[in-house]
């Protein structure tokens, strides 16, 4: 939901996805966070590690992306040239630390009171650097999106829509 992606299509290669999941695995291990979630700034869930039960991760990503967008307006109002890089929410039992990654992605770390915020900050910062590197390295990698969205798939998807969403 930020500059660069307005109405545009976007595809993530298998290679980059595996790098991202490796980085998330490392991050969840080092921080002892309950869960680590990677999403794009439009709120599409890309990958998650750690606990996956108890909440709808897709909905969580949509809300997190919305929150970043809202606070980017707040940032502008107080004179920041760009959006805030980190958002932190502290609860009685659970905390959420969210970071912007590159321009188009979000990293969400969910952790409880036994984990120190400082540790989350340090390892998240390193994780972001690695994620940005992984995303940067393959910025020019060609992908055959047409292969994903071929005519047969579209035709079958259309039929599935009518079947699943019929009255």
């Amino acid at each position: 939901m930020t500059k660069g992606r307005n109405g545009k299509r976007f595809a993530l290669s298998e290679d980059v996805f595996l790098k991202i999941t490796d980085i998330l695995n490392e991050l969840v291990g080092k921080t002892r966070a309950r869960a680590v979630i990677f999403a794009d700034s439009n709120g599409h869930l890309i990958a998650q590690r750690g606990e996956t039960i108890g909440y709808d991760a897709s909905a969580l990503c949509a809300v997190a992306a919305g929150e970043f967008s809202a606070t980017s307006e707040l940032a502008r109002m107080v004179g920041e040239s760009d959006s805030f890089r980190f958002l932190y929410h502290e609860g009685t039992e659970t905390n959420v630390y969210m970071s912007r990654v590159a321009q188009d992605f979000l990293l969400i770390v969910i952790f409880d009171q036994t984990v120190a915020l400082g540790m989350v900050r340090v390892f998240t910062k390193r994780g972001i650097e690695k994620l940005e590197e992984a995303l940067e390295k393959t910025a020019t990698e060609p992908l055959a999106e047409e292969a994903f969205l071929d005519v047969e798939f579209s035709s079958l998807l259309g039929r599935e829509l009518d079947k699943s969403l019929g009255d």
Partner: peptide, 26 residues
């Protein structure tokens, strides 16, 4: 549901008819 089905079909048709899919690759 009719409205929903129609817009989803339109979205899928749009995928097939646009000139190029590649706008940004990461």
């Amino acid at each position: 549901m009719e409205t929903l089905r129609r817009v989803l079909h339109a979205v899928i048709e749009n995928v097939q008819t646009r000139p190029t899919l590649r706008e940004r690759v990461v």
